[in-house]
Design a protein around this nucleic acid. Structure first.
Length: 201
DNA sequence: GTTTCGATTGTG
DNA sequence: ACAATCGAAACC
């Protein structure tokens, strides 16, 4: 069955990560080989304004992609074993981006189960490193253009709007600038990662 | 040059 | 609660 979907354009990413992040909720992250999932959890990182951002202290070899054009994918390696993926945002606020934290699996579930080495759908792609493993994203994909139809990874709009009232909380797993409520998620979605927090009143 | 620590996950 | 595991950042 063919899904009608439009590639997100460069312009979509050309604004503050604080706007791009919630706008990415319910968009679809897809690979060229048919794996895809709906984005249900994201976090914004704001470059020099954000002590928790990798780009806070300026450009390095590792974070160079974050200082490049919006709409490209910044992939980093952490804890000696995990890859995580971001969409680069506003270029006039250098080093900003949106960490993709969880996907609800849509297609290519067998490929994802194989890549993850597990069966449970709930654990396939709920978590920033889990979704990269599920989609086969590694450092090799760092800097690829998410707005290029030829790229191995893209982000699409299949017609589902972002939630009118997304869940919102401080970001997970950071020590500095931890108070900023720069995490957004699809409230009630079972594929959202992280410790269960109180939902909106 | 050496040490510290992480935008995490899986297991105990 | 805590180990796994290694490269980049931080420090000297």
């Amino acid at each position: 069955m063919k899904i009608r979907a439009n590639l997100m354009t460069r312009g979509f990413y050309q604004r503050s990560p604080l706007e791009v992040a919630p706008a990415l909720l319910n968009k679809v992250m897809a690979t060229a080989d048919g794996r895809s999932g709906r984005i249900v959890e994201v976090e914004a990182y704001c470059g020099a304004l954000d002590a928790a951002a990798h780009s806070y202290r300026g450009r390095t070899a590792r974070n160079a992609t974050m200082f490049g054009p919006p709409g490209h994918m910044y992939v980093y390696f952490t804890y000696g074993m995990h890859w995580c993926a971001n969409a680069v945002a506003w270029e006039t606020e250098p080093g900003s981006g949106v960490l993709i934290r969880a996907l609800q699996p849509l297609t290519g579930l067998d490929e994802m189960r194989s890549a993850r080495g597990i069966q449970a759908d709930r654990l396939l792609s709920s978590g920033p490193a889990r979704l990269c493993q599920a989609l086969g994203i590694t450092g090799k994909e760092d800097s690829l253009d998410l707005t290029d139809r030829q790229s191995r990874v893209t982000i699409l709009d299949d017609g589902v709007s972002p939630p009118a009232q997304p869940g919102n909380s401080p970001r997970i797993g950071i020590a500095k600038d931890a108070a900023h409520p720069w995490r957004w998620y699809v409230a009630g979605n079972p594929y959202v990662s992280g410790p269960k927090r109180a939902l909106q009143p």
